[in-house]
Design a protein around this nucleic acid. Structure first.
Lengths: 198, 198
DNA sequence: TTGTTGCTTGACACTATGTAAAGTTGACAG
DNA sequence: CTGTCAACTTTACATAGTGTCAAGCAACAA
C-alpha cells in the first residue's frame, strides 16, 4: 500500500489538511493532528518545531498536490488580455474552495503569528503576480480602462479575488461557486476594461 | 453613586479600545486592559465575564461614541439613488479607520469564539442594511444595472465595503483613504448603475 | 453598629504550546 | 549475532493566558 509507505511527514501534512478542511481551523490542535496521523504528539515536533511551521509546510504541500502554479500559469496561454483576465479569474476562482481549510487557519493565525502571516502573504503575492500579469496584458492590448493605472488595476483585481471576498460572497451571502465566478468576472471587466472593449 | 460603577466600566472599555487601536489585537490581554484602566485584572471579570463579552461591549460602546448609526443614516437624506450610494460609501469609508482596532480583534477571534463571531456579524449586518437601502434606492430610480438583482447588488456592494477589502487596499497595497473611497465608489457605480446613468 | 458595594490580593484549575530526557523498536552494517 | 543509529514513544515539566474562587478591606448607608 502506498499509503503505508508514505513518509511520516506526508502523513502529518495530510492529516493536518484533512482536519483543517473539516472543522474550525482554530480547534485543530497539534494533538488532533498527531492522532489523525497515527503518531504521538511529540513526534510531530520532531518534524515541525512549531504549529506555525507545520502550517507553512502544509501550505507548500498543498501547493504541490494541487499544482497551483501550473494551473494558474494556464491563463498565460490566452491570446488577448481580456481572455487572459477571464481565464485567470476562472482558474483562481475554482481554486479557492480547495484551499479554504488551510486559509481559515492562516486567517486565524494572522494577527498572532508573524511568521505565519509572512508565509501567507507570500502565497498571496503569487496570486497578485497573476493579477498583475493579466492587467498588464490588458494594458498592452490598449484595453485597460483609463480610470486606473496598472498598479491600481492590479490592486483592485487582487482585492476582488481575495479569499476574504470569496468567503463573504459564497459563505455569508450563500452564492454558488458559479455565481461567484460570473459576477466577479463581470465586475473585473467593467472595472478594468475601457468602455469600447465591452 | 451608581455612576461609579459606570465609570469603571467606561474606563475598561476605553482602555481596551485604546490598546486595540495601538498594537496587534491578539496581544491585548485582559491584564493589559486592566492595567491600562488602573484596576486589577480580576475586577475586569466582575464587569465582563469573558474576553469575548468585553469585546462585544466595547463594540457597542464604540458605536455609541462614534455615532455610527446616525452618521450612516445621513445617506438617507440623498435625493437620488446614485447620490445615496455615493454618500453611503463616503460615510462608511471614513468610518473604517476609526473602528479598525476593534475590527482586528474580532477578525482574530472569528475562528475561535462563536459568540464574538455572532456579535461581529450582527454589526456587519447593519452595514449590509445600508448597502441594501442604497441598492434598493437605485432600483426604485430605475438606475440599477440589469446585470444584477437587488440582492446580488447588495451582496456585491457589501463585499466591496468589507473591512477586509479596505484593509487589503489601504494596508497591504498602500492606498490612501481618499484613493480607497474614490476607486471603490467608481467600482460600485460601474458595477451597479445601468450604463445609461453613467 | 451592621450590611452592602466595589474593589484588591492571592491561589488555583484548565488548555494548549513547546521543551527535555530516557526508553523502545526495527533496520541494517559489520 | 551484535552493536549502532534513527525514528518514534512515554512521561514529565515549563509557560502563557483565560477564567474561577474565596478571603479581606475601605467607604458608605441604614
Amino acid at each position: 500500500m502506498s499509503s503505508e509507505n508514505l513518509h511520516t511527514q506526508t502523513k502529518i501534512l495530510n492529516a493536518a489538511l484533512n482536519l483543517l478542511q473539516q472543522g474550525p481551523a482554530a480547534k485543530t490542535r497539534m494533538s488532533d493532528i498527531a492522532k489523525a496521523a497515527g503518531i504521538s504528539r511529540q513526534a510531530v515536533y520532531l518534524h515541525y518545531p512549531s504549529r506555525a511551521d507545520l502550517m507553512i509546510a502544509a501550505a507548500r504541500h498543498l501547493d504541490q498536490v494541487k499544482e497551483v502554479d501550473a494551473r494558474l500559469a494556464d491563463s498565460r496561454a490566452a491570446t488577448s488580455g481580456a481572455q487572459r483576465l477571464r481565464s485567470f479569474i476562472d482558474a483562481w476562482g475554482h481554486f479557492m474552495p480547495e484551499i479554504w481549510g488551510l486559509a481559515k487557519a492562516f486567517l486565524a493565525m494572522r494577527e498572532t503569528d508573524e511568521a505565519a502571516a509572512a508565509a501567507w502573504d507570500d502565497r498571496m503575492q503569487a496570486v497578485r503576480h497573476g493579477c498583475q500579469a493579466a492587467v498588464s496584458a490588458l494594458d498592452q492590448d490598449d484595453q485597460l480602462s483609463s480610470a486606473v493605472t496598472v498598479k491600481q488595476g492590479t490592486d483592485l483585481l487582487w482585492a476582488l479575488l481575495s479569499i476574504e471576498t470569496w468567503r463573504r460572497l459564497t459563505h455569508d451571502c450563500g452564492w454558488s461557486q458559479a455565481a461567484y465566478i460570473d459576477h466577479i468576472t463581470r465586475l473585473a471587466e467593467v472595472a478594468l476594461l475601457n468602455r469600447g472593449s465591452l
